[in-house]
């Protein structure tokens, strides 16, 4: 497998250095802790919003640090939870009098590290809480989790809590918003290929030329079932039906619809999926109020996609509409 790589051990630090050099006015890079933070942070007048996870899911989360989104992100190595001291030091550096919220996708390793960092920082006097995101509908338990996994739907939780924080909400109010959005967000993904971690150099698992993995997690870990490749519209049906049934979403609902690329699928294919999902929802009386198509939470170079639905109300829609300035931009 051909990759742009020098020393695989330096893959994450070299990516973070590039990110910081490309955004000198808005981002600050602290190499000791893999930390990317807002250059002007922490802001004492707002709750600091922090998310960490393994690397390999970019743009999540280091590339969505900026005004209106995350105040900081502290990634671990590729697909590995950040070490405890990175999260602990990040929490201390981001301590604002209004508090710190640590957002965590529900994977066992991340959960243990972030809970520990929260408890340690709290014992030191930092006002800090954790919020776990678990939007995946495909499995109740998986290789690395206790309970449902947190996947691409975490984008909506981040956007909403960050907007609430920018508006001046206190920590309890920010958590209320985050829990609310998490409770109405549902995601399911599909892999067409495996992904290749730079330090491994070969695919993480075997997926036959004519096979797809339905309900895949963001590390390629297995989900619901393996199936033969099928037409795109049928794949949309395989993902959308369990999502709609799960909440459930029903006639008259207004939703945000996200088609998230897993890293190796062209945006043309993502829009093809979007069109079908949008029409199928309309047939069920579900209106798409906000649409998102692109790469939000990826698995390195995996070909595949996930669909996320969020049930909107006036509060959530208003928070999602607030402005944000992050490194991902097209002009």
């Amino acid at each position: 497998m051909k990759k742009f790589v020098n020393n695989p051990q330096q893959f994450v630090p070299e990516m973070l250095e590039g990110l910081a050099l490309a955004n000198p006015d808005t981002l600050k890079y602290v190499p000791e802790f893999n930390l990317i933070m807002r250059a002007d942070g922490p802001d004492p007048n707002k709750v600091s919003i922090v998310q960490g996870s393994g690397s390999g899911h970019e743009p999540a989360h280091v590339m969505i640090v900026g005004k209106g989104m995350l105040d900081a992100a502290c990634p671990g190595d590729v697909f590995a939870a950040p070490p405890f001291d990175y999260v602990h030091e990040t929490t201390r550096l981001m301590a604002s009098p209004k508090g710190v919220l640590l957002l965590v996708n529900n994977y066992t390793g991340d959960k243990m590290v972030f809970e520990m960092a929260q408890e340690m920082s709290a014992a030191e006097g930092v006002n800090v809480k954790t919020l776990f995101i678990n939007d995946d509908v495909s499995v109740e338990d998986s290789t690395y989790t206790i309970g449902r996994r947190g996947v691409a739907g975490n984008f909506f939780v981040i956007k909403a809590v960050a907007a609430a924080a920018e508006r001046g909400a206190d920590l309890d109010e920010v958590i209320r918003v985050g829990e609310k959005v998490n409770s109405v967000t549902r995601t399911m993904g599909v892999a067409l290929t495996a992904c290749t971690p730079p330090a491994k150099g070969s695919p993480l698992f075997e997926l036959g030329e004519d096979e797809i993995e339905l309900g895949v997690g963001i590390h390629g870990e297995p989900g619901r079932r393996r199936a033969k490749i099928m037409p795109a519209n049928d794949i949309v049906e395989e993902l959308l039906t369990p999502i709609v049934k799960d909440l459930p979403f029903s006639d008259g609902d207004r939703v945000a619809l996200m088609i998230n690329g897993l890293g190796g699928t062209p945006i043309s294919e993502l829009y093809l999926l979007y069109g079908q999902a949008h029409k199928r929802l309309a047939e069920q009386g579900i209106t798409v109020g906000r649409s998102y198509v692109g790469e939000y939470c990826t698995s390195l170079d995996m070909a595949g996609a996930s669909i996320t639905l969020v049930k909107l109300d006036d509060e959530i829609e208003s928070l999602l509409k607030d402005p944000a300035e992050i490194p991902i931009r097209v002009f």
């Binding site: 070490p83 405890f84 001291d85 602990h88 243990m112 590290v113 809970e115 520990m116 408890e119 340690m120």
Partner: peptide
């Protein structure tokens, strides 16, 4: 002591002993 061992002990033993 808790900070040191949580940071330095690998796997789940670090957070458990650290806690």
């Amino acid at each position: 002591i808790a900070v040191t061992i949580t940071s330095r002990i690998g796997g789940s033993s670090g957070p458990l002993w650290g806690t």
